[in-house]
Amino acid sequence: WVPTKREEKYGVAFYNYDARGADELSLQIGDTVHILETYEGWYRGYTLRKKSKKGIFPASYIHLKE
């Protein structure tokens, strides 16, 4: 896992994603996520609506905010 280059990196989910394991994070369309790390097509972070739950999710489900 590699920390993100920018201190504040955010994105928005444009697909729903159902977590398949305890380390994964479920997403709903429109969720804003804070991205902490990246690795081979995956991000690690949390949604702003539930900051206490961190997990991994596919990068392809996220539109990055500039």
Results as ranks from 00 to 15, higher is better:
2 V>Y: 10
2 V>R: 13
2 V>H: 11
2 V>W: 09
3 P>W: 07
3 P>Q: 06
4 T>D: 07
4 T>P: 09
5 K>G: 14
7 E>R: 11
7 E>N: 14
7 E>G: 15
8 E>C: 14
8 E>N: 12
9 K>C: 14
9 K>S: 14
10 Y>V: 08
10 Y>W: 15
10 Y>G: 02
12 V>E: 05
12 V>C: 12
12 V>R: 06
13 A>M: 03
13 A>R: 03
14 F>C: 15
14 F>S: 08
15 Y>K: 15
16 N>S: 11
16 N>E: 08
16 N>G: 08
17 Y>R: 00
17 Y>T: 00
17 Y>D: 00
18 D>P: 05
18 D>N: 12
18 D>G: 05
18 D>V: 14
19 A>N: 02
20 R>D: 05
20 R>L: 08
21 G>N: 15
21 G>F: 07
21 G>L: 06
22 A>V: 11
22 A>E: 13
22 A>H: 10
23 D>L: 08
23 D>H: 11
23 D>M: 08
24 E>S: 03
24 E>N: 02
24 E>K: 03
24 E>A: 03
25 L>N: 01
26 S>I: 04
26 S>V: 03
26 S>W: 05
26 S>G: 04
27 L>H: 00
27 L>T: 00
28 Q>K: 14
28 Q>G: 05
29 I>D: 02
29 I>P: 05
30 G>C: 09
30 G>F: 04
31 D>A: 04
31 D>L: 06
31 D>V: 06
31 D>S: 05
32 T>S: 07
32 T>I: 15
32 T>F: 15
33 V>Y: 02
33 V>G: 00
33 V>A: 01
33 V>F: 02
33 V>N: 00
34 H>C: 15
34 H>A: 13
34 H>F: 15
35 I>H: 00
35 I>G: 02
35 I>V: 05
35 I>S: 01
35 I>C: 04
36 L>Y: 06
38 T>C: 10
38 T>E: 14
38 T>I: 12
38 T>A: 12
39 Y>C: 14
39 Y>D: 03
40 E>R: 11
40 E>W: 09
41 G>N: 07
42 W>R: 00
42 W>G: 00
42 W>V: 00
42 W>P: 00
43 Y>S: 01
43 Y>I: 05
43 Y>C: 06
44 R>G: 04
45 G>Q: 04
45 G>V: 04
46 Y>F: 08
47 T>R: 15
47 T>K: 15
47 T>P: 04
48 L>F: 10
48 L>M: 12
49 R>Q: 11
50 K>E: 15
50 K>D: 15
51 K>W: 11
52 S>C: 14
54 K>H: 12
55 G>I: 02
56 I>L: 12
58 P>L: 09
59 A>R: 09
59 A>N: 03
59 A>L: 04
60 S>K: 15
61 Y>P: 02
61 Y>M: 13
61 Y>W: 04
61 Y>F: 09
61 Y>K: 06
62 I>W: 02
62 I>E: 01
62 I>C: 07
64 L>M: 06
64 L>D: 02
65 K>S: 13
65 K>H: 13
66 E>V: 13
66 E>S: 14
